[in-house]
Amino acid sequence: MFKNAINGLFTFFYAISQLATLTWEVFYRFPLIFKNFDLTVKQIRIIGLGSIPLVLVTGAFIGMETIMQANFQMQGLVPMRYLGYAVSKALITELAPVITSFVVSSRISTAIAAEIGSMRTTEQLDAMYCLSLDHIRYVILPKVAAAAIMLPVLVIFSELVGYLASIFIAYAFINVTMFTYLEGLRLFFYAPDMVIGILKTSIFGVIIAISGAYFGLACVKGAEGIGAATTCAVMLSAMLILVFDFIVALIFL
């Protein structure tokens, strides 16, 4: 039992060190991104544009659910002019960045793990090595860069749609005047909150792409191996998003 626990701990720290090494190797090559920027643009299209429908739907429901919950919690206790404030703060600092990142992670980290895992099992990565082509530069770096660039953009979309959806719900279902709600949104809007909320999603983008790449590279042969890699990738990225969200909150809030 004790031996198993020690082994498990050793494996965990070994995985963390490997993950950190991969992250370092990606960032070390970051200046090379402009030499093959077409590869990053391609990934921006796949990761960014491909996720827009998902993000719009997610953002709308985050906005609607936030105002419903805020209204339920505040009714009779807090003046309704604070409704806009509560929705705004929750939406831009926490809910839209984190939930959107979770949803995008389920699409992106799994896709990256499956793609790189498949390249690993079909020897495409070995072929790159044999041709003296650096797989981190050509395969992983464009994905990490695209995720870091596009996740904030996706979160901005999500927040925008969330706001609009909350305004619609306020107008249609909640007993608050449009003027009161919009004044709440406007008066207590604090730009640095939004900047921090958006910038931290860049970190989440890196986490999502690196998690997918790490498990893709570690993928063992066969369909089962690729399945396991995608599952692990989405689990790790979700966990790390929460960890880094807490760290950002600790530092900036």
């Binding site: 498949s118 390249m119 079909t122 020897e123 495409q124 070995d126 072929a127 790159m128 044999c130």
Partner: peptide, 11 residues
């Protein structure tokens, strides 16, 4: 140079 068994072309 290496020719892989399944060719290992970039999909």
């Amino acid at each position: 140079g290496l020719l892989f068994q399944g060719a290992a072309l970039f999909d």
